[in-house]
Design a protein around this nucleic acid. Structure first.
Lengths: 298, 298
DNA sequence: GGTTGTTCATAACCCTGCCTTATCGAACCC
DNA sequence: GGGTTCGATAAGGCAGGGTTATGAACAACC
């Protein structure tokens, strides 16, 4: 029979993901019969079924299940070959997909994207904003090319470079402005408002207060720094936010911002990418650009 | 431009190895112009040259040098996929997940697993022991591949094959051994001990006594046949068990076993799997093996 | 329970793309 | 300078892969 083709593998990946021939066909941009035929050919060349077509349900066979990760790996490798070729040809051009955590994105992105597209007009930047664990998964899967997160990540397959440190500041209701700044351990006794479970900034704030985990307090976890600051403004408690968020978030709330004495809490923001990524050089340039954008912020 | 293809990569690999278009073309079994065209297309899609065509010498560019190992790795991975598919498709090998009901598993499995793994050492059998309704759900969801249960199941999406019939026998306290065997309808008046709600064997025993359902009798439902026999031994009542369980369960209890006159109660044990399952052939072989194992039991 | 809808497979057709052979052109060799 | 080598180019034919239309099986719904 015929040989395997990348086309067939791409189609296979799509069907494996969607478990539905019609949707998979849409996803890869061909008609459903064309996709069905390719899958059929693929199964014929392999000499075994990959999918079990039940009524209204497409299921991977055991072989399909075994093959899926290998096929994905192959396709990612092929993408990398294309990336490598492109980057070798002309630095700082082409599509680059960058993930950013939510406690960084709103404050850093506007100026950073501006700088970068001005300096490198051929660069096509796609931004994905979500929590660190998801970014790490997507980076590993090749669905994004790099990510801007809090270090360390400590994945052996990723390269990580620090970009800048950012201090945490205390946000209190306006009327507390003249009170002394509490020590770290005193924060634990106050009504400290935190982001929802899953945000790395939540864990970083807790670490500063030397708390292993927060007691569950119904309704007092915010889904964004903006929410937290609004709650503080309403007198519900106090919170920590990164320095970078101060200008944007405290503009229109009745809150006062106070810096901590040494040791000032902080975190390191950096960039990560797959060690095998051929775009590494570009990422170093981008990281540098991010650093400039960050230091230009108020 | 066009997409990368495995064909192009194979040609690239050949040229990289031979450093000669004509020889490479012979090696991959096409004409030299065809190969030249494919390489040209490949370079066009990558946007960079891979070879330096000097006079009487083909040399890899820097990029070609970088790409060669990646391309080789990809081609090897693809070969592995094909090999994996081929080897997996040899019958009676690989992982097979089989569900078995609790009133069968302890008696049948030891010898059946032994037979099967001896005859098919590459077969990797996973057993799941639980009640019929759960097995049916898991089979439908693809969490198991087949199940050994009492027939009929009558799910239109499942194939079912009978394996063997097994008679039910009466278990009484030792001192009743000489009494006549009661008729089916008399059992209803005796203290008949049953398995807990949910076991199909409970319903089958009730059906034999022409009872639609048992009155709830606190504390008199057993969680296993073993428990029921122990209760009988303690003089609490009588019970029914499948023939197959006699040897194991009545060995060390003060009970006597009696067979019923015709019509002897019995049930049909069989195997079920999704009609769409590509493993159907394997299941028929396995069912046959189960049948042999069952007839070899005392 | 007939009808409608969903979903994958099949059919018929068409076009693009790949391979073939023939030939060219440049570089090297004598 | 003629012959040789070797990759590029040209022209034509076949087929692989795409399209739309339709079929078949089955679930779901008045």
């Amino acid at each position: 029979m015929n040989n395997l083709t990348l086309k067939q593998m791409r189609y296979f990946e799509a069907v494996a993901e969607h478990r539905h021939f019609g949707h998979a066909a849409d996803a890869v941009g061909i008609s459903q019969p064309a996709l069905s035929m390719q899958i059929k050919d693929l199964e014929a060349t392999l000499g075994a079924q990959l999918f079990e077509r039940a009524s209204r349900q497409v299921r991977l066979t055991r072989l399909g299940e075994d093959l899926a990760p290998r096929v994905r790996a192959i396709l990612r490798s092929v993408d990398e070959v294309a990336d490598l070729a492109r980057s070798s040809q002309q630095a700082m051009s082409g599509r680059v997909r960058i993930g950013v955590i939510p406690t960084i994105a709103p404050y850093l992105l506007p100026s950073f994207i501006g700088h970068l597209t001005r300096d490198h007009p051929t660069l096509d930047i796609h931004i994905r904003e979500t929590l660190t664990p998801k970014l790490i998964t997507e980076l590993g899967d090749g669905r994004i090319d790099a990510a801007i997160v809090a270090l360390p990540v400590s994945e052996p397959s990723f390269e990580e470079v620090a970009i800048f440190d950012e201090d945490f500041v205390l946000v209190r209701p306006d009327e507390d402005a003249d009170r002394p700044v509490p020590a770290a351990r005193d924060l634990a006794k106050m009504q400290l408002l935190l982001l929802e479970e899953g945000h790395c900034f939540r864990d970083q704030a807790l670490a500063f207060c030397s708390m292993r985990s927060a007691l569950p307090r119904e309704g007092l976890d915010g889904s964004s720094l903006s929410t937290l600051v609004q709650l503080v403004g309403a007198g519900i408690g106090v919170t920590l936010i990164p320095q970078m968020a101060v200008a944007v978030e405290t503009r229109s709330a009745n809150v006062s911002v106070a810096r901590f004495d040494a040791p000032c809490p902080k975190r390191t923001i950096g960039m990560i990418w797959r060690k095998t990524s051929p775009l590494a050089d570009q990422f170093r340039v981008i990281a540098d650009s991010v650093k400039k954008a960050a230091s230009a912020l108020p």
